[in-house]
Design a binder for these strands. Structure first.
Length: 977
DNA sequence: CCTGCCCCATA
DNA sequence: GTATGGGGCAGGA
């Protein structure tokens, strides 16, 4: 800070004195607890402060102050104890500690002041108010005018002909009339009134029974405090008279407490607070570090600098612990703390939600944007706001064949629009609809206008299930960034909680609002029409409401992340998956239509032959595909033994039942199992897959869901490419139809035993850890441990049993389940489990710990901190309860493995690009990634992919066991796997 | 025409 | 025993 002497103040100067300390409290309580940096640092008050300061520096004349300052200083309280505590030890004694997330902001605001090259003033032993009083007196003496930026009533005593106050939050000027209105006396008598009335907030005692009204009346009558006290005996009202006499000294002490000191020793002469030139670099570095995108842009414009070239400042923040890189592992006690209690983050989030709920939601009030001028206005608004909720309306749920019909935007709760672009006449001809409706901006023109906004780094785009819109917009040449996804926010925070993460459910849960249903707009089933056929006003209500709801959900959900320490999970495991999966879906995979068609024919023939045989053997024709008819035949008419009932009381005809019958020597069930397999393969795969081949790309594009499992796994649908057969020879023929493009190979890389490795890590099982480290056969090792047999020359049946137990452990083993799986008695299965736990006591400890946690918290966590909620685990139904307990045992294992492959996927594209390799990730099947690789790059790609997958946990975590990835390339998926 | 049930494909 | 998605049947609209 400058210490050389500056020209002293002169008449006509205008001094702005900003009451920094009171501003931060007011900003904190007035602004919603929404604003946080991506690392969770709360910066809402800082943001408010910076905007205010910037406005004062740039356009103070447009505020209620009406002038531009020549001098400006921000004044802070230095310490809690001041000379007033020596006068009265109770002064401000009952003031509560500042809220936890406000504390780190005190220091940052001082940084902000310096970043804007403004004088920051504080003085040990004195309150900000005294320094302000001193500066104000000095300025007035020099003939200058003063504006005090504060609304603190304690400063109103300073108001006079040359001193006003400015409440920037209300943009309200406080001069003599306003002071008179508040205290009933002129500013120079305010101290007398306060001395009598006291102040419960600052613990100024005053005189009992006298408030501001009475005090003003008394002062107006007697002139000033001393006169009043000396003539107190004249007061008519008994109690008031007695109190004024008895508490006269207390009133005098109060006067000394409230009267501001105009003679504070100040180290920095006011002249040094002359407005200085903005240091663009310094300001931008600070603002970038704070992630205040809008203000960064404004300052960059004003300073004529490119914000992109400025490095964010490195701010060491005291009193704030950023969330850990990896959240505590499942066995940590730290996760016990309930986020739902007291005035913690959960309460703040709830307060936030209540606030947003209170803003009316009226679907008929949205704007339908029909011309370029209005579209530009909305785009400008989004740039100003710095964030915008975006939603697209299209002709199909499949983003790869959907056509864009319109776009909706929202920049504030209740403020949303819909931009129709592709609506057509509902009375279309048979060739696919009528012409475009009038009054719509041409698609290309709208896209050209929207692209800069949707790709601008300074504007956050908010969507519900962005992956869909991302693909739609990418096909139109727009790559949306940066972005947030409300569905993923909800999934990160509440995976497994009732209702799911769909927009309608979230709107109900958080906003108490039922959005217009898609079916109510477009109809459903056979009579459904595509969105382009919907009349504009109806379309606008529906579409704009979605954007409005999305924006509100974002405001409710985003601020929960840091308080629930889920920022890292969201930022590393969820958010970055959106473009990764979008690109995978867009690439699709090539399937050989002819091969499938041929296979379908073969399967049909085989099934027909079996059908004839079955009918022959049964002695009647019946529908083999009807479990009901089949059950009646086998256990009714044929009277076979060993029938089991399903939970609804029908005969079970599942494979296990049919195999039991086959083992008894009945030939019919064998044929039925074969028939089932063939028809299943045909209907589910060979016949269904070709229907999913995209007309334009000639490839199959699955859709991955990021938010539909409780554990963190993805799911795949339309078509589901995560359940393509592999176990049987007939099934593998279907895999052979998944082929690489000409000149390429399919590369399959899969984690070996990843869930068992994760379990070995989490439960810290020495034998398992060692076995994995040594690269042993883990099932054989298990068998050796529990059945006490050597690994060498092991009976394959013994190994099979151990393998089943290992899987059972992952699933939260029960004797019942294991017995079923191995076809042994429950007693025998129970013995196996008992032995297993004796050999691996850590496994039992792990299981018990997960059960304890799920009962205590309602959720369990993966090694990367992902939560899986089981809200109903405390049910009284013992079967349900045990079911949830098993799920809670399984979730950290399955979920941690899912986290690991997510990390690999997020990193994969950059890793390949860095090595100049052009392999493209196409599919994910839980522990396997499938790539399409040019022939000549196969050899270089295999080790790189494998290493990236194996190293995926680091640097966040280092597992106790190595991960192993097997990778292979071939012309088709079957041979690569 | 929709929904619940059964069955079955994968990890 | 965990986690999914999907096809066919059958009953109730």
């Amino acid at each position: 800070m400058s210490s050389e002497s500056s020209p002293s103040l002169k008449a006509g100067d205008h001094v702005f004195l900003v009451d920094g300390s009171s501003y931060i409290f007011r900003a904190y309580h007035a602004l919603p607890p929404l604003t946080r940096k991506s690392d969770g640092l709360p910066v809402g008050a800082v943001a408010g402060f910076c905007n205010m300061l910037w406005k004062l520096l740039q356009e103070a004349d447009e505020t209620a102050a009406g002038v531009t300052p020549t001098h400006i200083a921000v004044i802070f309280d230095h310490s809690a104890k001041t000379f007033r505590n020596e006068i009265y030890d109770q002064y401000k004694a009952q003031r509560p500690e500042p809220p936890e997330d406000l504390i780190p902001q005190f220091g940052i605001i001082r940084d902000a002041v310096r970043a804007f090259n403004v004088a920051s003033i504080e003085q040990p032993g004195y309150e900000a108010d005294d320094i302000i009083a001193t500066y104000a007196c000095q300025a007035v003496e020099a003939g200058a005018d003063v504006t005090i930026i504060s609304s603190d009533k304690d400063l109103m005593q300073l108001v006079g002909p040359h001193v006003i106050m400015l409440d920037t939050m209300k943009n309200k000027r406080i001069a003599e009339p306003e002071v008179f209105e508040k205290f009933g006396v002129a500013p120079d008598k305010v101290v007398d009134v306060q001395s009598l009335a006291g102040d419960s907030v600052d613990n100024v005692p005053g005189v009992p029974g006298i408030g501001v009204k009475t005090a003003a009346q008394l002062i107006n009558e007697y002139g000033d405090l001393e006169t009043l006290l000396s003539r107190a005996s004249e007061i008519k009202q008994t109690k008031r008279r007695e109190n004024l006499i008895e508490f006269a000294d207390q009133a005098r002490i109060s006067r000394r407490l409230v009267e501001l000191d105009c003679n504070t020793p100040v180290d920095v002469p006011l002249a040094d607070a002359a407005v200085r030139k903005l240091d663009g670099e310094k300001a931008l570095a600070f603002l970038k570090a704070m992630e205040f995108t809008t203000l960064t842009r404004r300052v960059a414009e004003t300073a004529g600098k490119d914000a992109g070239t400025v490095e964010a400042a490195d701010l060491a923040i005291k009193g704030w612990d950023a969330p850990e890189t990896a959240a505590p592992s499942g066995s940590s006690e730290k996760s016990v703390a309930s986020p739902a209690s007291g005035a913690g983050p959960a309460a703040l989030a709830e307060a936030r939600a209540a606030e947003i709920r209170a803003i009316p939601l009226d679907a008929s009030a949205y704007e339908c944007v029909r011309d370029v001028a209005r579209l530009k206005a909305w785009i400008e608004d989004a740039f100003e706001t710095g964030f915008v909720a975006v939603d697209t309306e299209t002709t199909s749920l499949d983003p790869m064949e959907a056509e864009l019909v319109g776009v909706s935007l929202s920049t504030a709760p209740g403020k949303a629009c819909y931009i129709p672009l592709g609506h057509r006449d509902g009375e279309g001809d048979l060739l696919g609809g009528g012409g475009l409706l009038e009054g719509q901006i041409p698609l290309k023109e709208a896209i050209d206008l929207l692209k800069p906004l949707l790709e601008d780094a300074a504007v956050l785009k908010i969507a519900q299930n962005l992956k869909y819109d991302w693909v739609i917009l990418k096909r139109l040449g727009i790559e949306v960034a940066p972005y947030d996804d409300t569905m993923l926010l909800s999934y990160t925070l509440d995976a497994g909680l009732q209702g799911g993460n769909g927009m309608d459910a979230l709107s109900e849960r958080w906003l108490g609002h039922t959005p217009i249903k898609y079916e109510d707009v477009c109809g459903k089933g056979k009579s459904a029409v595509t969105f382009d056929k919907i009349a504009l006003d109806r379309a606008c209500s529906y579409a704009a409401e979605d954007a409005d709801v999305t924006l509100r959900l974002w405001q409710v959900l985003k601020c929960r992340l840091p308080g629930e320490t889920m920022t890292t999970v969201y930022e590393t495991l969820e958010r970055p998956m959106v473009p990764v999966l979008s690109r995978m879906e867009m690439r699709g995979i090539h399937v050989d239509r002819q091969m499938l068609s041929r296979l379908s024919g073969e399967l049909a023939q085989g099934a027909a032959a079996l059908e004839a045989e079955i009918h022959e053997m049964a002695g009647e024709t019946f529908n083999i595909g009807s479990p009901k008819q089949l059950g009646d035949l086998l256990f009714g008419r044929l009277g076979l033994p060993g029938g089991k009932k399903t939970k609804t009381g029908a005969w079970s005809t599942s494979v296990s039942v049919l195999e039991d019958l086959a083992a008894e020597g009945h030939p019919l069930p064998v044929k039925i199992v074969e028939w089932r397999q063939l028809t299943k393969l045909r209907s589910t795969y060979t016949d269904a897959l070709p229907d999913h081949i995209n007309r334009e790309t000639g490839r199959v594009h699955t859709s991955y869901s990021l938010a539909s499992t409780t554990t963190g796994r993805l799911s795949s649908s339309e078509p589901n490419l995560q359940n393509i057969p592999v176990r049987t020879e007939a099934g593998r023929k279907i895999r052979k139809a998944f082929v690489a493009a000409e000149g390429s190979k399919l590369l399959s890389a899969d984690y070996s035993q990843i869930e068992l490795r994760v379990l070995a890590h989490m439960a810290e099982i020495p034998q398992l850890v060692k076995a994995f480290a040594d690269g042993l056969d883990i099932h054989a090792m298990t068998a050796s441990e529990i059945f006490n047999v050597p690994v060498k020359d092991m009976d394959p049946m013994v190994r099979r049993r151990a393998k089943a137990i290992n899987f059972g452990i992952i699933y939260g083993i029960s004797a019942f389940g294991l017995a079923n799986q191995l076809g042994i008695s429950r007693g025998e299965a129970g013995d196996y489990i008992k032995t297993y736990f004796e050999r691996f006591p850590g496994i039992r400890d792990y299981m018990e710990e997960m059960k304890r946690q799920v009962h205590a918290n309602g959720y369990v966590t993966t090694i990367f901190g992902r939560k899986a909620h089981y809200p109903d685990v405390n049910t009284k139904n013992p079967n349900m309860r045990q079911f949830y307990e098993r799920a809670a045992i399984n979730a950290p294992i399955q979920g941690s493995a899912a986290d690991i492959i997510r990390r690999a996927m997020v990193r994969m594209e950059d890793t390949l690009a860095a090595s100049k390799l052009s392999a493209k990730m196409l599919l994910q099947v839980h522990d396997e990634l499938i790539f399409e690789v040019p022939d000549e790059e196969v050899d270089a790609t295999i080790p790189l992919v494998a290493r990236t997958m194996e190293d995926a946990p680091s640097p966040a975590l280092s597992l106790r066991v190595p991960l192993q990835v097997d990778a292979r390339a071939a012309q088709n998926w079957d041979e690569a796997h």
